[in-house]
Amino acid sequence: MFKVTIDNHTIEVEEGTTILQAARMIGGIVVPPAMCYYSKLKESGGKCRTCLVKVAQGSARDPRPLPKLVASCRTPVADGMVVQNITSQEVIETRKAIVEFLLINHPLDCPVCDQAGECDLQDLSYDNGKEESRFEEAKRSFRVIDIGDKIQLHMNRCILCYRCVYTADQLTDKRSHGILYRGDVSEISTYIQTDVTNDFSGNMIDVCPVGALTDKTFRFKNRVWFLNPMNANRSCSKCSGKVTAWMRGGEVYRITGRKDQFGEVEEFICNECRFEKKELSDWTIEGPRNIKRASVISQNHYEKSKKPSVILPLENRTVSLDEFKNGSNNEIQL
């Protein structure tokens, strides 16, 4: 077992765990954002650079810091490693620059995009980015293409995270799309206009962090924040049948996989469940999903709020009133 300290939280993890996975075990605001890493997909990660962290102490044996910021999704922990994420100003500044880089070619078409409201890039730029853009040149632009009759590809919005390629590689029997060309002209496409029709190909919509791959059966049907995500299931021969049904009234607008707190699907679902079962009678509704209060999807969903656990009774507080006023104790500030 290796002992690793991330933002002053110490945790013991197995050998071979990456810094990102260790941070996810701690949870909370310590977790670096990740746009390309996907724990369910092998080989993913290392492309978007949003998860960069500072290693202030390489290991217990060699306490020198690593010379550059490292991608936490690809760097295994060492015993006695000390990592700084949000406690390092350098990381925060760099992340700001990375967001700016990702947004260079990303169009500001959120009002049109179906992903808006559940988009990782939107959240990332809101949390870590700048308000303005310094990029004045023309953005690259592509035509919208249909890959198969159910999936639409907006290459303009793609940030080249490769998640969909790994999904097709590892989940479906035959991969029929990939990345063509290289550098800033690289694009995701099928080989000579073939269709993507594999049984699990729809999962590339779920893994896409932006609105590049979208569900054609849901195109412009509704905005995600007007829908209620419900846990639903059905018996399916191909997949587990456990999905999120996005409903409004008695109508099922779309089906997606169930996403966990890191925005990753818990189980991949098949195309039949995703695209063809849009009737309420197809599904057993288990109940509403928990949504983060910060998410726009929780708008207008009135739920009873809970008292945060960090607020201790007064007599248990060890902080003096002066400290409290100056805000030196972060826990109580929350």
Partner: peptide
């Protein structure tokens, strides 16, 4: 208008 729904979202009277 591009039907982004932000007016409906912000509307306090729905």
């Amino acid at each position: 208008c591009t039907a982004c729904g932000l007016c409906a979202l912000s509307c306090p009277a729905e």
